[in-house]
Structures are given as structure tokens and as C-alpha cells.
């Protein structure tokens, strides 16, 4: 097997306990309408014996109602279906202490969000925004969320399905794993810079080039997984590490990755900006207190 692109469901079965995946059921919620958001696959499985919610994209599915949805694209129905699965997960464990809330595993192989006129008329931006807010809420409630990038994690679709996770692991680039906003050739055309020059620059600066290794350097993914067989272990390991990290109140998710980006030398300006603004506000904060 040299790639998992377009095979999110194969990846799903490889990662969770064999035969444990129950499609279309999350906690008390059943997703009964098969034609609803077919590009999104949601359900429950066990992972090393623990109950987990799994969310993936189905690259084979085509949404007849919204024909911009195919090949793993996240459309409006898909975005809301994914968000519903997260809220159903929250509801299922609402009475459990934070340390016992079930993990969410996001299998990431998606090339984009639905671009279309109907999508704009009805507000596609809300669907993907809704899913991101749901994930952020679940993460903050204590659910460990691990994203496994097994294929394509492209731009807004990665923002939506991946970047709100506590931790992100990505399969090595040799399996064709793609993480980017745009391929470098398109970046080159749009910003009118020579492709060779950009390729040379990307050796020393990871901020614009396409590929999981650049996101690793920026702290955008926590770990690269060198072999497909290692995916399951990597996800199990991250869930365990997250239980410990969350219990200690360590930063995870986008905040944790910002710190990681600084530690790995990929995003060093970000903390400088934050420190400067924090110091500047501290100097004037009294002016903005009541009765000042």
C-alpha cells in the first residue's frame, strides 16, 4: 500500500479496533438518512478498548442534492453532520467527569469545502464554522481529539476537519500526504514569484511550502508517522498522552501548536507579537478599569 488518499474508510478500519466501527450512531443519536451529507462518515468504534467517536470523509460519495460534493469535499450537509456528531458526543458524556469523556478521532482526507452558488446563498461558511466551534467546545470540555491526516488536508477543509483537534498526526509525505493551502506552483503563479526561488526559500522557511514536514516545523502537526502500520499506534499514543496533558492543564489544540511552532523554530514571530502586545496593554490597563 503506497497511499491512503481517497481511502479514508480503509484508514478508519485500520486505526480503530477491528470490526468495532458502527456507522451512523453516536451516543443516543442515530443518523438515519443515508442521503444526508454522504461525504461525511460518522460513528462510534472502540480504540484499544475505549469507546470513541470517529469522523471521516468518504471520497467515493457523491451528494446528489449538492453536486459540488464529491471526492471527499465537505459541503453544507457534511459540515453540519460532522458538527452534529460532535454535539452528540458531548451529550453522550455530559455527566461524566472530564477525564472520562470519550475521545474523538478525525480521519483527515479532504480536498476542500463546497464551492458553489447555492453554498454561498445559504452560507457554506456557517457549516464549517459550526463544526469547528463544536470541536473546540468538545476539546475544552475534556474530550481528547486526535486528527490523523492520512491523505489530503487542504486549506479551509483542514481548518474545518483537523486543526481544532488537540493533537494532529500526519502520515509521512512519501505516502502522498498533502497538507497545504495551495500547491507551490499555484502560489508561485498568484504571488508572481519564480517557482525555483520559492523552492529554494522553502528549505529555510516553512511558512509557504506544501507538505506535512513544513507543518511539522511550524508546529501545525504534532507528529509525523513514518509508516501506514504505525497510524493506529500513533493515535492510541496521542489519546493516552492527551489524557495526561489535559489532567495537568497543559495547552493542547491551536494554543499548544502555537507554542510548538515557536519551540521548533518555525513560528518565532508569533510569541514576540503576543509578548509585545501583552506588555503594552499592561502599561495602559488602568485606563480601562471601571472608575478610572
Amino acid at each position: 500500500m503506497d497511499t491512503l488518499i481517497g481511502q479514508g474508510l480503509v484508514a478508519l478500519e485500520m486505526i480503530v479496533d477491528p470490526g468495532s466501527f458502527q456507522r451512523d450512531r453516536v451516543g443516543a443519536k442515530e443518523f438515519t438518512d443515508e442521503s444526508y451529507g454522504p461525504g461525511a462518515v460518522v460513528g462510534t468504534a472502540t480504540l484499544d478498548g475505549q469507546t470513541v467517536t470517529v469522523i471521516a470523509s468518504d471520497a467515493e460519495a457523491f451528494n446528489e442534492k449538492f453536486p459540488v460534493v464529491y471526492a471527499g469535499i465537505i459541503g453544507m450537509e457534511e459540515g453540519y453532520k460532522m458538527a452534529s456528531a460532535v454535539y452528540a458526543t458531548l451529550a453522550a458524556d455530559v455527566d461524566k467527569p472530564a477525564a472520562q469523556k470519550r475521545p474523538l478521532v478525525l480521519i483527515v482526507d479532504t480536498p476542500g469545502n463546497g464551492p458553489g452558488k447555492v453554498e454561498e446563498i445559504f452560507g457554506m461558511n456557517k457549516a464549517t464554522g459550526a463544526y469547528q466551534l463544536a470541536l473546540a467546545e468538545a476539546r475544552m470540555a475534556g474530550h481528547p481529539i486526535v486528527a490523523a491526516v492520512v491523505g489530503r488536508a487542504i486549506s479551509g477543509a483542514f481548518l474545518c476537519h483537523g486543526l481544532q483537534a488537540d493533537r494532529i498526526v500526519a502520515l509521512d509525505a512519501k505516502f502522498g500526504t498533502m497538507i497545504h493551502v495551495m500547491p507551490l506552483t499555484s502560489v508561485s503563479r498568484i504571488i508572481k514569484k519564480n517557482i525555483e526561488v520559492l523552492e529554494e526559500l522553502s528549505k529555510s522557511n516553512p511558512v509557504f511550502a506544501a507538505g506535512p514536514q513544513f507543518f511539522y516545523q511550524l508546529g501545525g502537526v504534532e507528529a509525523l508517522v513514518p509508516e501506514i502500520e504505525g497510524l493506529r499506534g500513533a493515535v492510541i499514543e496521542q489519546v493516552a498522552a492527551l489524557r495526561a496533558a489535559k489532567a495537568k492543564g497543559e495547552a493542547t489544540g491551536p494554543v499548544g501548536r502555537a507554542a510548538l511552532g515557536a519551540a521548533r523554530g518555525g513560528r518565532v514571530t508569533r510569541p514576540q507579537v503576543a509578548a509585545r502586545m501583552t506588555a503594552e496593554f499592561a502599561a495602559v490597563a488602568d485606563k480601562y478599569r471601571p472608575h478610572a
Binding site: 469547528q132 473546540a136 481548518l159 497545504h180 493551502v181 511550524l218 508546529g219
Partner: peptide, 21 residues
């Protein structure tokens, strides 16, 4: 996202969303 620094820009978007929550 600013394409000249697209990866950092994308990650910043996720941070803003997280900050909202």
C-alpha cells in the same frame, strides 16, 4: 489566508476560532 505565508496564516485562523470558543 495570505499566500506568501500560507501555512502560518492557516494556523492563525485555527487559533482565532479557538480563541472565540
Amino acid at each position: 489566508v495570505r499566500l506568501h505565508e500560507s501555512n502560518a496564516g492557516l494556523l492563525a485562523h485555527a487559533e482565532v476560532m479557538d480563541a472565540f470558543q
